[in-house]
């Protein structure tokens, strides 16, 4: 067996936690418990977990507007996340950030980012710090097929190559940037070919296949840790929900989402694989499912009961000066 039972159970637990967290976010949003607008990552769980499972709290990730999965994979507390998304004062950012700005520095989670392409230059900085201080830590940025077209991302890739930074660029290619197809927005026939053009090893993997994604990322992470510089991994995947919760998704083909949920579900694919290989038993995973449902339920109940921020004390805290 190429993977330990403990590893496989942990992968399954994390993927499933992300799935249930996101599905519950949709429900709570629709129930009016989540202010603002929220982007969920269900369908893309395998990539988040494959990218983060071998990272320590000292390794840094930079995330995107679709960041819940990355946070969970990096070890952020789901209770603290749910509170943040609901704008409570005991949330991970005291309710000041919200869904698009969850950060947990202690966990090496540099922050979700509501500016598309805002993350990779910052992640270069984390990589530069690791390299300069000789810590052997690595930094990893999540990108999309859409953010791939941002100048900040091009600049960060080139600089990562020039400075040989320990930065793994992960591209979650879910086929869409809002309502624009990746095959329209990315001018090159292949994002991976374009990534390779920057002068770093670049690979395209099936992001629905946890194992394929994990193996590619493992090599990339080891390369970064050992001073080999950056790598770009494009992982093909499917977005199960709208761009944001409530997106009518008129641009998608009829039944596209229904079919994807049926046939392109990375968690189902993982389950089938580990069962058919005889690596895990269905019962073990079902037991985890139950625990996760209870954990998410608790997170929601706690978040709904959590205190709201108090403008008198919280509005003007964390500022360096006020006028």
């Amino acid at each position: 067996m190429p993977y330990s039972t403990e590893f496989l159970l942990s992968v399954y637990r994390t993927m499933k936690t992300i799935r249930e967290f996101e599905e519950r976010c949709v429900k709570e949003f629709e129930g009016g418990n989540v202010p603002g607008f929220t982007h969920v990552s269900n369908g893309q769980e395998a990539i988040a977990v494959a990218a983060c499972i071998d990272l320590s709290d000292k390794d840094i990730i930079g995330s995107t507007h679709r960041g819940h999965g990355h946070c969970i994979a990096k070890g952020c507390d789901v209770g603290g996340m749910m509170k943040e998304i609901m704008g409570r004062s005991t949330g991970l950012c005291k309710g000041k950030g919200g869904s698009m700005h969850i950060a947990d520095i202690d966990k090496g989670m540099l922050g979700a980012n509501a500016i598309v392409g805002g993350g990779p230059p910052l992640v270069n900085g984390a990589a530069l710090a690791a390299k300069t201080l000789g810590t052997k830590n690595v930094a990893l940025s999540f990108n999309g097929d859409g953010s791939a077209n941002q100048g900040t991302v091009f600049e960060a890739m080139n600089m990562a190559v020039v400075l040989k930074l320990p930065h793994i660029f992960v591209y979650e290619n879910n086929g869409y940037a809002e309502g624009t197809a990746a095959n329209y927005g990315v001018g090159s026939n292949s994002l991976t070919d374009r990534n390779a053009g920057f002068g770093m090893p670049a690979e395209c993997v099936d992001g629905l296949d946890f194992f394929a994604t994990y193996e590619a990322l493992k090599i990339a992470t080891e390369r970064a840790r050992n001073g080999g510089g950056p790598t770009a991994i494009e992982a093909m995947c499917v977005r199960f929900d709208g761009h944001f919760i409530g997106d009518p998704q008129l641009y998608r083909a009829k039944d596209e989402v229904k079919n994807a949920r049926k046939n392109q579900d990375c968690i189902k694919i993982f389950r089938e694989r580990v069962i058919s290989e005889g690596w895990l038993k269905a019962a073990a995973m079902n037991a985890i499912d139950k625990e996760i449902m209870a954990e998410i339920e608790t997170a929601v109940v706690d978040a709904l009961a959590a205190p709201h921020p108090d403008p008198a004390t919280d509005l003007m805290s964390d500022v360096y000066c006020s006028y």
Binding site: A177, E178, T180, Y184, A253, E256
Partner: peptide
């Protein structure tokens, strides 16, 4: 601009957003 029509290159409806 981005999504000023929406649906570029997609199989579904054109003018899917008409701006967000």
């Amino acid at each position: 601009g981005e999504e000023v029509s929406g649906g570029a290159g997609c199989e579904g409806e054109d003018d899917a957003y008409g701006g967000v």
